[in-house]
Design a binder for these strands. Structure first.
Lengths: 341, 341
DNA sequence: ATGAAAGCGCTAACAC
DNA sequence: GTGTTAGCGCTTTCAT
């Protein structure tokens, strides 16, 4: 275990000088610095995580997600990870199970106790007390997906997004539209699905219609299963579906095909998210950019930590997203994107 | 920021006693302990990450992956995360880009410098020098996927797995079989795809045949694209395909369907991994259990850290996996699993 | 420009 | 049983 001590001794300087030489803080003679740096290199020394302890820092960024193995979250994580490389910060990952007490434990015990210098909450509805807690510790927080009061959040306006998806179908002449997605009960941590449901209902109400809603877990197999039951009986089959996520939409699409329904001729489906498979399946969907949210969020928290963008009022600005309409069921044809603020 | 100091003062004891009371180590009067504990609770104190510093520990487990947003890796991560909950350990995640210097930086600067107490390498071929480095620091390492000399690794025998998949097709009477997968060049960090290729070649050679090989990135869209070019021309179309991963297999399957080919009547496809969509697509595949690998790996490293299973010779035992043969292209029908050691 | 010393928040020997 | 002391590996005043 090579410690600063060893580097200092090899370079024949004190620990203090070695520290300055390596960190770049404070005065140190050019010649001395070179000696220290080559000693460090020769010994294979690299600065440990404890180095920020005296400054009360951990060099660690906490990321909280409700799920790891879902496309959207995976993209966000990759975006974060890439942005973090060569920042000197580590990414520590917390998956919040749906268990409430478990959630409390993670939030309070880990995030809050100087185990992380900042937190990025992805698809998590932080409670006011959680936000207060972090704020009282001066821990920068930025959210991704949804909207949490008082914290800068990256993501689309989910209500508007679902409304646009719905309006698209209404404009196509559809009247019997159902929303297959999640709500507050199936995705208790995440605010976005309930908002998408609201957007759907709002758009339908505005058109003077009453939309149906079916709850489904957010996976392709679940979408498929729901599709089979929903679409098999043509007395209750809708002419169009707004899916709560692309996974559901793809599942529904597969179910429709399995039942021999022509999409979009006999059934129109629109999803939300921009899943990598959307184009492959010819899925009309509202695309956002989770990977960019990740890197932008990192930039934000790092800036705050560096003291630059400190406490500018956390204003929420929905990220741009656009509806990618695909008419054929399998011939990838981009664009005709409609901007969503 | 509530420190142990505050708890101690509130409970009217010394920091040492407070520490003992909270950690459970060493003698402390029951009555005193209660006082400390309630003081801690009242103040909202929780032990910080620095608590293990004096013992030279970080309470952190490093996990290295080549990709985050792929089904297999996501499953492993979820398995690890779940196993870690309430262990007191944090999971810090490193995604190794394919850039070699970047990889060196991560391996040396982060993993090795007491930033983590142990590491789990998922689908990463550690070099001997990397293993030596970690070993010299007494950092426990366990691998998942593939096989690294000197480190206990969880996963199937990929050579055998691919051979079994190939043999299955041979037994079905196929002679013109192609392998669509990755090799050392497309997935430089991961040993497993090259091994699967070897298993395929070996099985073909044993049957006195020469199998064709096509390189493809490991995603559904890429599998789809390769499928279109490979299957469109029926002069060069094989009768069966061994895919290097389920993503590729599913992509191929979709391409085949798009081209109007009946699967498995006109084209047999077998995948490897047990992707959640395999059943949905009626894909015959060799299933392993990435989530369990994750939790088992955690159990292993924690045991080593706790000193129990210390330095027992790291022997590699392939995990069980079995070939799930599905005959229909869309009717989920389990079973007829063949064990693979 | 450099070194000595104090201290980040905690644990562990060692005394009492 | 409990307090005192030293020290984990580093950064940072404060002298010099």
């Amino acid at each position: 275990m090579i410690a600063l001590h060893d580097v200092a001794r090899t370079a024949e300087v004190s620990k203090a000088t070695a520290s300055r030489a390596l960190s770049g803080h404070g005065y140190v003679a050019a010649e001395t610095r070179d000696r220290v740096i080559s000693a460090a290199a020769a010994l294979g020394y690299v600065v440990p995580g404890t180095s920020a302890l005296p400054r009360g820092r951990t060099s660690t960024l906490g990321v909280v997600v409700p799920h790891i193995n879902r496309w959207y979250f995976g993209e966000v994580l990759e975006g974060i990870e890439h942005a973090l490389v060569s920042s000197g910060y580590d990414l520590t990952l917390y998956e919040l199970s749906s268990d409430a007490s478990e959630r409390r434990r993670v939030m309070e015990n880990f995030l809050v106790r100087r185990r992380v210098d900042a937190v990025i909450a992805v698809g998590i509805e932080l409670t006011v007390s959680e936000v207060d807690l972090l704020r009282s510790l001066a821990t920068p927080v930025v959210g991704i997906g949804g909207h949490v009061d008082g914290v800068t959040t990256l993501g689309i306006d989910d209500v508007a997004a679902a409304a646009i998806a719905t309006d698209h179908l209404l404009a196509l002449g559809h009247r019997d539209i159902v929303h297959v997605g999640a709500d507050h009960y199936t995705e208790p941590d995440s605010p976005v699905y309930a908002q998408r449901l609201r957007g759907f209902r709002r758009a339908m109400a505005t058109a003077g219609l009453e939309g149906r809603f079916r709850v489904s877990p957010l996976s392709i197999p679940d979408g498929f299963a729901h599709g089979l039951t929903l679409l098999a009986d043509d007395t209750q089959r809708p002419t169009a579906i707004v899916a709560g996520s692309d996974e559901i939409a793809i599942g529904l699409l597969l179910a429709a095909r399995q039942l021999g329904l022509a999409v979009p001729a006999e059934l129109s489906i629109v999803g939300i998210d921009g899943h990598q498979l959307a184009e492959l399946f010819g899925l009309t969907t509202l695309e956002q950019h989770p990977r960019q949210y990740g890197s932008s969020a990192v930039a934000l928290v790092l800036a705050t930590l560096a003291g630059s963008a400190s406490e500018t009022a956390p204003t929420w600005q929905p990220s741009p997203a656009h509806l990618v309409v695909r008419s054929s069921t399998s011939a990838p044809a981009h664009d005709s994107g409609r901007e969503v603020v």
